[in-house]
Design a protein around this nucleic acid. Structure first.
Lengths: 188, 188
DNA sequence: CGATCCTTTGACGGAAATCAATAGGTGTGG
DNA sequence: CCACACCTATTGATTTCCGTCAAAGGATCG
């Protein structure tokens, strides 16, 4: 149950390299990404306080996890986890459940990428992040965007420029009340 | 460990409805899909012999699983599964591992949808299916396509017409040796 | 305060979507 | 077995949304 600080842009795990710990985000945020041989990068998810990564021990991680800002995590080497699980069988059930949650998030992401327009993707993204780390106040929700535009674009399967234009258009017709580099404000 | 036959187009589980059994495909194939409110459908995966579905008991399934052809499955109600797991702790580890595999497949799908061109998607799809159920013979691999074109298009995030044109183009320049409704042949 | 990075905006082009018609399979019943 | 209907797939013409290329505007940091 050790604690670790991860400074901005440092990795928790790297695609293709072994990882034998389960991490729980205590504070901050992370980006999960995969890259194709030619360098094209797909961001597959973002992690915030309370999220898990490294649910299973592996010799080749499926993705890279990098800190979007200075962050802090708890980590549990899997071999200790196995020992704990002997006395507390519920632990494994929790891991199965967590795995399912991740899988369902991935499925929603698939629907977003496969079927939605640029505008729908951007709105879905803001709502998704807003639900997780949004701050509500008087009918308005402030949604922090700790990641750069390029990360959002790479998550949404859009080009940076298209994302920027789409955000501007949403601001224009009032669906985004406030638009700034590191946050947007929407109506609830 | 009961057995069940599922005729073509019948569902094993339905998005939004409860499911309390784990299924293992014994024979045949299934399509997993989700639909948006307006009816747009995203195929999130295909299942073949040996694949699992329903790894976790739920009151609202995340997707629909339908038979692409007359198929046969084994099923295990989760409450029996829990009993079994008491004596055989390895069972839960297997489920965790299986969940991870599914998650990784979903991530590859995300990369496909987020970053690849129509041609790359079609090639990736043929290779993916080929690896799973392809039949090799003398440097050639016959890849069965038990699903209709519309399902493939909905998996790849393309329109039916675009898929058809892309397949025709691949046939044209020899990257597909043989192209038929229910199979393609490629070089290994 | 300058340098660098990140983001926005503009002009243009292209890949895939859309609209539309045709062709090919499959199953049924006469 | 053939003829018809129906469903699935292909091909063609055109449009559109998003990508690409290019430049300028803003933030951030030493």
């Amino acid at each position: 149950m050790a604690r670790r600080l991860v400074v901005k842009n440092k990795t928790l795990m790297v695609e293709g390299e072994p990882n034998h710990s389960l991490y729980v985000i205590v504070d901050g945020s992370f980006r999960l990404s995969k890259v194709l041989e030619d360098g094209r990068r797909q961001v597959t998810g973002f992690l915030f306080r309370g999220d898990f990564v490294g649910v299973r021990s592996t010799d080749a991680s499926a993705y890279t996890a990098e800190a979007l800002e200075d962050s802090s995590v708890c980590f549990f080497p899997h071999r200790y986890l196995d020992e704990i699980a002997i006395d507390a069988p519920g632990v494994k059930d929790r891991l199965i459940a967590r795995g399912q949650t991740e899988y369902h998030k991935a499925q929603d992401h698939i629907v977003l990428l496969g079927k939605k327009t640029a505008e729908e993707r951007v709105i879905s993204f803001i709502e998704l992040i807003g639900k997780t780390i949004g701050v509500d106040d008087d009918g308005r929700r402030t949604v922090p965007l700790p990641m750069p535009r390029q990360d959002i674009a790479d998550y949404l399967g859009l080009r940076l420029e298209t994302l920027s234009r789409t955000l501007a258009a949403l601001k224009q017709d009032g669906r985004i009340l406030e638009l700034a580099r590191h946050h947007v404000v929407i109506e609830i």
